[in-house]
């Protein structure tokens, strides 16, 4: 059943760092200050090919406002990758990324591939977070780091390709985490079952 992979990627980032722009640029290759044709940029999926293998990415946007921060873990559940976006002209948004990384690692452990992205490369002149700073931080938390510009379509698809590669690597390293399209069940960690609903053993009596 080596049909391909199916990954869930969550998109985290403070408001106005360009989450929806990045997503739309990637999925539809569109950028405009007022996008009109697409009415939603919160859930998108795209199938790509990495090393000749089909990878279906489901990208889940999350609400970035402070007051919804506590809801994060509900979104993280069952995701194989996280895209943490910040605005290189806004150091507050970078600090926000750090708190998310901590939380992700607390909830998901090391099972989630992390990709930190500095967006708005087109505003290089107003940069307040240096590439060096971001990169060294990413290294300490075992994440990858890239910079993009959704406006000028710089580095967007590379971000997703790299993330997909990393997710495949992790999925193959830990085969018990089943992300193959064949069976995407989440029945992990279910033990000590005494009753079965399947009667494939003939010796079992049918009822009490």
């Amino acid at each position: 059943m080596d049909e391909g992979f199916r990954f869930k990627v969550i998109l985290l980032g403070q408001g106005a760092v360009g989450k929806s722009s990045l997503l739309l640029r990637y999925v539809e290759n569109k950028f405009s200050l007022r996008h009109i044709s697409t009415i939603q940029a919160s859930f998108q999926s795209k199938t790509i090919e990495v090393d000749g293998r089909q990878v279906e990415l489901s990208i889940w946007d999350t609400a970035g406002q402070e007051k919804y921060h506590a809801l994060g873990p509900i979104y993280y559940r069952g995701s194989q990758g996280a895209l943490l976006l910040f605005d290189i002209t806004d150091s507050r948004s970078f600090e926000k990324v750090k708190t998310w990384v901590k939380e992700l690692q607390r909830v998901l452990g090391d099972s989630c591939a992390l990709m930190i992205v500095g967006n708005k490369l087109d505003l290089e002149k107003e940069r307040t977070v240096t590439e060096q700073e971001a990169r060294s931080y990413a290294e300490t938390v075992n994440a990858q780091y890239m910079e993009t510009s959704a406006k000028e379509n710089l580095g967007i698809s590379q971000v997703f390709d790299r993330l997909a590669e990393e997710m495949i690597r992790m999925a193959e390293a830990s085969p018990q985490q089943n992300t193959r399209t064949g069976n995407s069940n989440s029945a992990n960690g279910r033990s000590n079952r005494t009753i079965e609903l399947i009667d494939d053993e003939p010796k079992r009596s049918k009822c009490c």
Partner: peptide, 18 residues
């Protein structure tokens, strides 16, 4: 999403969840 279309499009989760 349709309701939000008039004010913000495309709608991201920032607008959708509230």
């Amino acid at each position: 999403f349709e309701a939000l279309k008039e004010s913000v499009a495309p709608t991201s989760a920032d607008e959708f969840l509230p």
